[in-house]
Design a protein around this nucleic acid. Structure first.
Length: 195
DNA sequence: CTACCGATATTCT
DNA sequence: GAATATCGGTAGA
């Protein structure tokens, strides 16, 4: 567990691991995070921040504790948590979670899928929480959002290469909790080098 | 399990 | 103007 105030002074990978098991609320829906990926700012070729600040990515270059939400493939919204420190543009992509409150509200957006698929995958997670582009830049500490640190079950943390990135695949910066059904299936990027 | 492909904001040329 | 993308549902094997 790592309090929000400590995020700026820790490596983004450590913050990412500490987010596993913590909870995020948006309105009536609360989820417990089971899978994340770390993105290390401008120096990380897989990060949206790699080419410097743009109107879309500006929020990542600011202080930690805000959401960065972007549209993926023209169809889905995906949510990141900005980790800081200020200027470095580090962020953690939320890839999988369990819905622990507000399941009925989540189902109005996700339909009658099995429970473990309500928030499995970054697009589905943002959908279950009802996050869209208008939530990009919103403070985690301010309603309707809420974030609660929890003790990370360190012995259950596993790691592997990030999903869907075409570069920097040697960085095993995807972290998840072993045995959680809400962890998404691994899909290699269509452009990743075979092997 | 794998393969396909939708539909669009954002960025680059 | 064109290329790209931190993906997911569905069809088919």
């Amino acid at each position: 567990m790592l309090p929000l105030e400590a995020w700026a002074s820790r490596p983004v990978t450590e913050v990412a691991v500490s987010l596993l098991g913590s909870t995020l609320r948006h309105g009536p829906v609360t989820v417990r995070i089971t899978e994340v990926e770390a993105y290390a700012g401008e120096s990380d070729p897989a990060s949206h921040a790699h080419r410097g600040p743009t109107p879309r990515t500006r929020v990542m270059f600011g202080a930690p504790g805000r959401l960065y939400v972007y549209r993926s493939h023209g169809l889905h919204w995906c949510a990141n948590i900005v980790c800081g420190p200020d200027g470095l543009a580090s962020a953690v992509l939320l890839r999988g979670a369990d819905v622990i409150a507000g399941e009925a509200e989540a189902r109005t957006r996700r339909g009658g899928v099995p429970y473990e698929r309500l928030a499995r995958g970054p697009g589905n997670l943002a959908s279950a929480l009802g996050l869209t582009g208008t939530d990009s830049g919103a403070l985690l500490s301010r309603a309707p959002l809420g974030w609660t640190a929890a003790h990370t079950p360190v012995g259950q943390v596993q790691r592997g290469p990030r999903v869907g990135v075409s570069g920097a695949s040697e960085r095993e910066w995807r972290f998840w909790l072993a045995g959680e059904p809400s962890v998404s299936a691994y899909r290699r990027s269509a452009r990743a080098q075979p092997g």
